[in-house]
Amino acid sequence: MEFLMSYSAAVCIVILILYALHYGKNIACRRGCKSNAKLTGKTVIITGGNSGIGKRTALDLARRGARVILACRNLQKAEDAAKEIKTRTGNSEVVVHHLDLASLQSVREFANKIIESEDRLDILINNAGIAVVSGEALTEDGFPSLFGVNHFGHFLLTNLLLDLLKKSGPSRVITISSNIHRCILSPMDLTRVESDDNGNIRRGLYPRLKTYHHSKLANILFAGELARRLASTDVTSVSLHPGVIFTPIWKNVWSRIWILTPLYYILGPLMWLLLIDEEAGTQTTLHCALDESVSHLSGRYFTNCEVSEPSAMAQDEELAKRLWEVSCLATGIKEK
């Protein structure tokens, strides 16, 4: 019995030491956005701003006086979020527009509405995204859902709003990526599948681009290529890793497989201990949106409120150019 008690005590001590090391390396060292910038008279669009870090970001920017446009698929959740943000900040300039990134038609309709109704656009935050889908789910336009929503939708949206961003300069495009892009070891296959012998479009126009990892790599490549193409303008383009965050998305991921749902509630407290919270997860986005120094760092990738080097593949300019060409073809954008 004494041996078991000693053994248990030793295990507990080891666990506490490991957690202390993890806390110091990944949580306690998190930097916060130091900017005191006010955004009165500025307009911001945040995709997916009705929950998670998108909502937290919208709340902070609204407190700074910005006109905040929540671009969301679920209008009821977006209206609820807008109401809460207005109440907490006293800023009535929080509006909601429908945007479904899984539909290029919806993206075009949203962009047209913004162009018609807004005089300026100072910050575009490409925040929305999905991390898991059921089976071989496709977007309305035949793209694998993860890549279609996380990359093609934002690619089209940004390009359609570029003239407004240029007109409003200095302005910024901030694209949320993830360090998970580092897990990709083989080259990105951008081959498009056209039609079968009967002239029918095959399932999934870009069948190799179906993982979350690929979509997050594409986010960085897109932001970098956009920066190069806008080098002579007042539009800054950056991408970032917000951190590994404990958000509702984890519940959505686990609930996709019903038998795993109970594990979420069992492991939830452990995840809360190991991951950063939503407020910490917004800080790098806020830094990229507000800090004056970022305007001189267009094309860079940020982690924990500072410049970080992404994977070698994410820095491949030829791959970025090829992805841009493919994205123009996929979304119907005429390449300039």
Results as ranks from 00 to 15, higher is better:
residue 214 H to W: 07
residue 215 S to C: 15
residue 216 K to Y: 03
residue 218 A to Q: 02
residue 219 N to W: 13
residue 221 L to A: 06
residue 221 L to K: 03
residue 225 E to N: 14
residue 225 E to W: 09
residue 230 L to F: 10
residue 230 L to C: 09
residue 230 L to R: 11
residue 233 T to N: 00
residue 234 D to K: 08
residue 236 T to V: 01
residue 238 V to R: 02
residue 238 V to S: 02
residue 240 L to Q: 03
residue 240 L to E: 01
residue 240 L to N: 02
residue 241 H to G: 14
residue 241 H to S: 14
residue 244 V to A: 09
residue 245 I to N: 01
residue 246 F to P: 02
residue 247 T to E: 15
residue 253 V to T: 11
residue 254 W to D: 10
residue 254 W to Q: 13
residue 259 I to L: 12
residue 260 L to W: 09
residue 261 T to Y: 00
residue 261 T to K: 03
residue 264 Y to G: 09
residue 264 Y to C: 07
residue 265 Y to H: 04
residue 265 Y to S: 08
residue 265 Y to M: 04
residue 266 I to R: 10
residue 267 L to F: 14
residue 268 G to N: 08
residue 268 G to D: 03
residue 269 P to G: 09
residue 270 L to E: 12
residue 271 M to G: 15
residue 271 M to A: 15
residue 272 W to M: 13
residue 273 L to T: 08
residue 276 I to A: 06
residue 277 D to A: 13
residue 278 E to C: 14
residue 279 E to I: 13
residue 280 A to P: 00
residue 281 G to K: 08
residue 281 G to V: 09
residue 282 T to S: 02
residue 284 T to K: 06
residue 285 T to Y: 01
residue 288 C to L: 09
residue 289 A to V: 14
residue 292 E to A: 15
residue 296 H to D: 05
residue 297 L to F: 02
residue 298 S to G: 04
residue 300 R to I: 00
residue 301 Y to D: 07
residue 301 Y to P: 11
residue 302 F to V: 04
residue 307 V to G: 03
residue 308 S to W: 04
residue 309 E to I: 05
residue 311 S to F: 03
residue 312 A to K: 12
residue 312 A to V: 09
residue 312 A to I: 09
residue 313 M to G: 08
residue 314 A to M: 05
residue 315 Q to R: 07
residue 318 E to I: 10
residue 318 E to T: 11
residue 319 L to N: 12
residue 320 A to Q: 04
residue 322 R to C: 06
residue 322 R to G: 05
residue 323 L to I: 13
residue 326 V to I: 12
residue 328 C to E: 11
residue 328 C to N: 12
residue 329 L to I: 15
residue 329 L to M: 10
residue 331 T to Y: 09
